[in-house]
């Protein structure tokens, strides 16, 4: 029993270090090679966890080797466009001016329904609204709408909107987040006066956010919970 526990802990630590070593790219956007590596790591790591007969080294070494080679491949992808094309392929245009490129769709083995589904996810319900759509190397579809169908922006309407930044957490579950003060123009004196004005102590606050424009949002803790 203890052997299973210890082996699971060791494998957990190694897999976490490996995934961290691969970087954030791994989580956000899986390229074909990264998808393969992720599946392989989970498979290899599971074997010695379930079967104490298998030496731990027999799993840890392949995991580390795969991660290292993934890092080398990523570095080569950045250095060489040719290598990148071999490993990841190219983005392809599948819709031009509202018309599906049937040749490319056939080549990519996409069904029309697949494309319509991806477009719907981007709030595009009519294919004729699309100026260009690309099949990206990670299999997702990105598109740009015809100018007449694009959402009007403040710039298009010549409206000046002040930049308020994003709401920054000032108090999280009764704890003041000093590190984030400078991002929202907050200081301890200002915070004290806001708390005094609202007749609150920091311990009574579940969440307090502030933005650069000085907009404050306070959510009090529910005393009944």
């Amino acid at each position: 029993m203890l052997i299973y526990l210890l082996r699971a802990i060791i494998i957990y630590v190694v897999v976490i270090i490996s995934v961290r070593l691969m970087g954030k790219r791994q989580i956000g956007q899986l390229q074909p090679s990264e998808l393969v590596i992720t599946i392989l790591i989970s498979e290899i790591a599971a074997i010695p966890m379930q079967n104490p007969e298998v030496p731990l080294v027999g799993s840890l070494i392949p995991v580390l080797v795969l991660v290292c080679f993934e890092i080398f491949t990523s570095a080569l992808n950045i250095k060489s466009k040719k290598f990148r094309n071999i490993m990841q392929g190219n983005s392809l245009i599948i819709i031009r001016d509202g018309v599906l490129d049937q040749k490319q769709i056939k080549r990519l083995r996409f069904s029309v329904e697949d494309i319509l589904e991806e477009l719907r996810k981007k709030d595009v319900f009519d294919i004729s609204d699309v100026l260009y759509a690309f099949a990206e190397t990670n299999g997702s579809i990105s598109c740009i709408l015809k100018s007449s169908k694009q959402t009007a922006t403040a710039e298009m309407l010549n409206i000046q909107i002040p930049d308020t930044g994003i709401p920054i957490t000032v108090i999280d579950d009764g704890v003041i987040q000093y590190k984030q003060f400078c991002d929202c123009g907050m200081d301890i004196n200002k915070l004290s006066s806001i708390l005094k004005k609202n007749k609150l102590t920091k311990e009574e606050i579940l969440l307090m956010t502030a933005d650069k424009a000085g907009k404050i949002n306070i959510i009090k803790k529910d005393k009944n919970i």
Partner: peptide, 18 residues
């Protein structure tokens, strides 16, 4: 840094394997 770490790990694994 990652590339360096990966290179070190591969060298260590290679040495340990041999």
């Amino acid at each position: 840094k990652r590339l360096f770490a990966a290179a070190v790990i591969i060298i260590v694994i290679l040495a340990l394997s041999i």
